[in-house]
Design a protein around this nucleic acid. Structure first.
Length: 947
RNA sequence: GGGCGGUUAGCUCAGCUGGCUAGAGCGCGUCUUUGACGUAGACGAGGUCAGAGGUUCAACUCCUCUAUCGCCCACCA
């Protein structure tokens, strides 16, 4: 016996994967080739491209472990890949590994700290080499885990984000952008993490609402032409707390033509006042009209700064006067640009104060804030404070408050790229699942600001730019592009340049992912680019998908993929986000070990739809495991039938054949022969009956065809959960519960084989291991199921199929009626009586098989027993009168409930508008239903009367 | 402040362009050792589809509003 008795996924999964991998079936068969490969001047790309299917894996961290989101990713991507492979495409599922620039750097920096070192002890090149070794040591886990999940990817084509070809491509793009003027070096404010000492792109910043304080500080006006007594706008003699600026009182006061000798500014960051280079008021604000152009003395310093007019100042907010700190605030930076204000950096990269009076120098921002507030208070300049809630930028990794920091960085003038992307998106060149993400993405691109691509961490791709350090070479540009980033210093035409020490934002290189994975080049025709689909998390729509589209268009002129499928977050069983701190993280590998890889895949796809964050329940994995077990046992049963038919018992069959012809010679009816042979006794009787052909054969063919059709639709529309659902139901509820149960009576061996094969292939994309294991165990199959042909539709007779459907209805009613009758099962041995019913007569054995009624006889004489109502066949269960009476109540209930349904239908028909406006077929349907229900009620009533 | 999504059975979710008695898995109840499967089989209970209004012959489905949960974006000093 080849088939193990029980389904044990752990026993075969890794062997199966190894066999697949060794056979090379995961590699694509269609090559890339130079455009016009045969040099006949004719572009022959079309015929090739229609037979390919390509998809790239969002690269998991090279030295990490897979989490549940990766599990979902693989389940989705590999199902697609396997499906299209079975459909005959040359599939290329390209795996990747991410150097995960910042993530890995953070881990490594901690490692350094643990050993008592800091990054500042080493040069960038040394650090790069160290992290490289660190990653190499840790690497490999996730690749094993991808195999355990069954990812049918082309391992020989694995792309690491720091591979030569990636760096080459990224440099080529950068050079092109530099030459096209899309890249500039600018001193701008960037989001800077003082702990990690690096800048971030806007997209990487995490905004959190926090409680903070808004302080009001008095800035004295230094020029006082009228020589009036010092007065503050809100200081009307009482010299207590200032009234709220939004009260009418304040307004009225402000309308008065008073001369002021100080301005009150509101700030949440008093320590930055040392960097103030102006105070701004709104040009339309009448209160301050006369002050514009005057100066105020900056508290705690000797400096004076101008009062300027700028729209940025909102008259409704605070006092309407705002301090301007161009070096440490985004808005202020822009105000500064408009008014040509100096930028004074007062916070250093390590988060301490610089360029401030000696007293504050070297303090951290927090210490400095305390000190400033204390000093202001002493001088009577701190007027009030108020608790507010505002949004604060944090480092997404360590949670440190990000400091807007003035830095020289490389920026991409992104609007030019975005504009092209928007055009193609609006053209509908990329189809999104879920659909609404297209619009969301376009909106994002429209408002995108220039992209800072410089990072101050060593673990990444070096920026290939060098700065001139030969000052006398005045005609030479300050910065030049050069690929020799392995050198810290280069010389060109006698001019010396020094390397920029920064590395690229990983999203800059990642945005080339479809290009580099498929080995796209300018002069090669590549039938795998654009990708058929980009599947990734909805959370990186902006960070990644948007950038891949822009970069794909910029580099290749084409969108990088035709469709985008975005999956949502996998939440815990209660719909909460998984996190280490909450302790609710589910490790996919634990589930694989416990229930098998297939069970995990089926489970995670269940109940999931595009773009939605959805809870994950272990029960769905259990249900997947149960399906695998079911399929395993279905296959064992079919195999045992095939074994029987294959002649191991042929001698016995021969023996029986004599008997059979004897019976036949006696003129016995077929049913009689079957009875006399006593069914179930030995396999040879089944051989005799194998000629009969309505034991659900046509019906199951019809159901499987419907299943395939729906499955194909679902795959095309990325409805994975529905695809799994329809397979589940067809295999379990239809194939096992009805077809196989019926085939226990007579077997159509060829059809059993064919239908089982069909279902195995159809399920293979979702449950690759169990289907392959079964395939390898079946006696009549060969090769891998993974490379089988997608099944053809099955032929069937619709009338016979429908007959079986009717029998099902009858069987279900017999079962439920018996169940509802009082007594134990042993008491319920009632015969079925029929009156003049060809269908029941013909399928007597089948009905007996499925209902376990002891006998089915023709009703001779007047009706007796319990009439079955639903099936609309004249059928009676031969139940004694006293038992029937006990069933009376349930019969009455039934009449009432059918009556309610009838009322609803009648109501519909009494509405003239319905008859007039609803489609004809619906009206007819309603009419038919009314007739049916009426007939049913009258049957039930007759039944009741009999009792 | 702007935008997006959810609210359907005890739990997790389907229900695609409006039209059969609103479905599934898990859980629950009763029964069943029947040529594979108790990780099973049979039968069943369980829903005023968040609320209100509107459009329509017809609304879980479309529109408006409300409540509530969640996500994303944004420069409120």
């Amino acid at each position: 016996m080849k088939f193990a008795k029980s389904y044990e996924p752990g026993d075969y999964e890794s062997d199966i994967y190894a066999a697949w991998e060794a056979s090379g079936i995961f590699s694509p068969s269609v090559p890339t080739y130079p455009v016009d490969a045969d040099a006949d001047g004719i572009d022959d790309r079309l015929e090739k491209s229609c037979s390919t299917y390509s998809i790239v894996m969002p690269p998991p961290n090279a030295n990490g472990n897979l989490h549940i989101g990766h599990g979902l990713t693989v389940a989705l991507e590999d199902s697609l890949t396997r499906y299209y492979r079975l459909r005959g495409k040359s599939t290329w599922y390209i795996p990747g590994a991410d150097h995960a620039g910042f993530e890995t750097w953070v881990v490594y920096e901690k490692e350094l700290e643990k050993h008592g070192h800091t990054r500042f002890e080493y040069s960038r090149d040394e650090l790069y080499a160290k992290v490289w070794d660190f990653v190499a040591q840790q690497r490999g886990n996730m690749e094993l885990q991808l195999r355990a999940l069954g990812a049918s990817c082309a391992w020989s084509d694995l792309t690491f984000t720091l591979d030569e070809n990636v760096i080459d491509r990224v440099y080529t793009t950068f050079e092109k952008m530099w030459n096209d003027g899309l890249i500039y070096r600018g001193e701008k404010l960037v989001n800077f993490c003082p702990k990690h000492r690096t800048a971030f792109a806007d997209i990487e910043v995490e905004h959190k609402d926090e409680k903070g304080t808004l302080w009001d500080i008095e800035y004295k006006i230094t020029e006082n032409p009228e020589g009036a007594l010092p007065r503050s706008i809100f200081d009307d003699g009482s010299n207590t707390e200032r009234p709220s600026p939004v009260t009418t009182g304040a307004r009225e006061r402000s309308e008065k033509d008073v001369s002021l000798d100080s301005l009150i500014v509101s700030t949440t960051r008093p320590e930055t006042l040392f960097g103030d280079t102006a105070v701004a008021v709104n040009p339309d604000d009448k209160r301050y009209k006369d002050l514009i152009g005057k100066h105020v003395k900056l508290p705690l310093t000797d400096r004076t700064i101008p009062i300027i007019a700028d729209e940025h100042a909102d008259p409704e907010y605070g006092t309407g006067a705002v301090k301007i700190t161009p070096a440490h605030d985004y808005d202020d930076f822009e105000v500064g640009e408009r008014h040509n204000l100096p930028r004074i950096q007062v916070i250093a990269e390590d988060g301490t104060m610089i360029n401030v009076p000696e007293k504050y120098n070297g303090l951290t921002t927090t210490e400095c804030r305390k000190q400033v507030l204390k000093d202001l208070k002493e001088q009577g300049l701190l007027k009030s404070e108020k608790k507010i809630e505002h949004s604060v930028a944090h480092c997404y990794k360590c949670g440190t408050v990000l400091e807007p920091m003035l830095k020289e960085q490389w920026f991409i003038d992104v609007q030019k790229l975005a504009k092209v992307a928007i055009e193609h998106l609006e053209n509908g060149e990329i189809k999104f699942y879920p659909e609404n993400k297209q619009k969301v993405l376009i909106d994002y691109l429209k408002n995108l600001k220039d992209w800072n691509i410089s990072r101050q961490i060593p673990w990444g791709i070096a920026i290939p730019m060098f700065k001139k350090i030969t000052p006398e070479a005045t005609d030479e540009p300050d910065w030049i592009f050069d690929r020799r980033t392995n050198l810290t210093e280069i010389e060109k035409a006698g001019v010396k340049y020094v390397r920029d020490e920064d590395t690229f934002d990983t999203w800059f290189s990642s945005s080339h992912w479809p290009i580099v994975c498929t080995d796209w080049t300018e002069d090669n025709y590549n039938p795998y680019y654009p990708l058929n689909v980009m599947e990734t998390g909805a959370d990186i729509l902006f960070a990644w998908v948007a950038r891949m589209i822009m970069m794909g268009l910029y580099v290749t002129g084409e969108v990088p993929f035709q469709e985008v499928y975005l999956h949502g977050l996998v939440l815990d069983a209660h719909g909460k986000k998984m996190s280490k701190s909450k302790g609710n993280v589910i490790n996919p590998m634990d589930l694989v070990a416990k229930y098998g890889s297939d069970a995990f895949r089926l489970g995670i796809l269940r109940g999931r739809s595009a773009g939605m964050n959805q809870a994950f329940n272990e029960n769905s994995v259990i249900s997947g495991r149960n399906l695998c077990n079911k399929l395993w046992n279905i296959s064992r049963l079919v195999q045992s039938i095939v074994d029987d038919a294959d002649g191991t018992k042929s001698a016995a069959i021969e023996g029986h054949k004599d008997k059979i012809s004897d019976f036949a010679a006696e003129g016995a009816e077929r049913s009689d022969i079957i009875n006399r042979l006593s069914l179930r006794e030995a396999p040879e009787t089944r051989a005799f009956c194998a000629t009969t052909n309505n034991m659900g054969e046509d019906w199951i063919c019809r159901e499987i065809n419907d299943c395939l059709e729906q499955l194909e639709q679902d795959m095309q529309n990325y409805r994975f959960a529905e695809a799994v659902e329809v397979l589940y139901q067809t295999i379990w509820d239809k194939y096992a519960d009805w077809f196989l149960e019926s085939q226990k009576l007579y077997q159509n061996v060829d059809l059993l084989k064919q239908t089982l094969e069909t279902l195995l292939i159809a399920l293979h994309p979702f449950a690759p291991f169990v289907t392959e294991a079964i395939w390898q165990n079946l006696s009549w199959t060969d090769g891998f199921i993974a490379t089988e042909k997608w099944p053809e539709k099955l032929k069937f007779d619709p009338i016979t199929a429908e007959q079986f459907e009717t029998i099902r209805t009858i069987v279900v009613e017999i079962r439920s009626t018996l169940q509802a009758l009082p007594g134990t099962n042993n008491d319920k041995k009632y015969n079925l009586l029929y009156d003049n019913d060809g269908l029941v007569n013909q399928h007597e054995l089948l009905i007996k098989q499925l209902t376990k009624v002891p006998a089915i006889n023709s009703l001779n004489g007047s009706p007796r027993g319990l009439r079955l109502a639903l099936a609309n066949h004249e059928l009676y269960l031969d139940v004694p009168e006293q038992v029937v009476k006990a069933y009376k109540d349930s019969l009455t209930d039934k009449i009432l409930s059918v009556g309610r349904e009838l009322d609803a239908l009648n109501l519909r028909m009494t509405n003239p508008n319905y008859i007039e406006k609803a489609p004809e077929h619906l009206v007819k349907e309603t009419k038919d239903q009314i007739e049916e229900k009426q007939a049913l009620i009258s049957r039930l009533k007759t039944q009741l009367e009999i009792i």
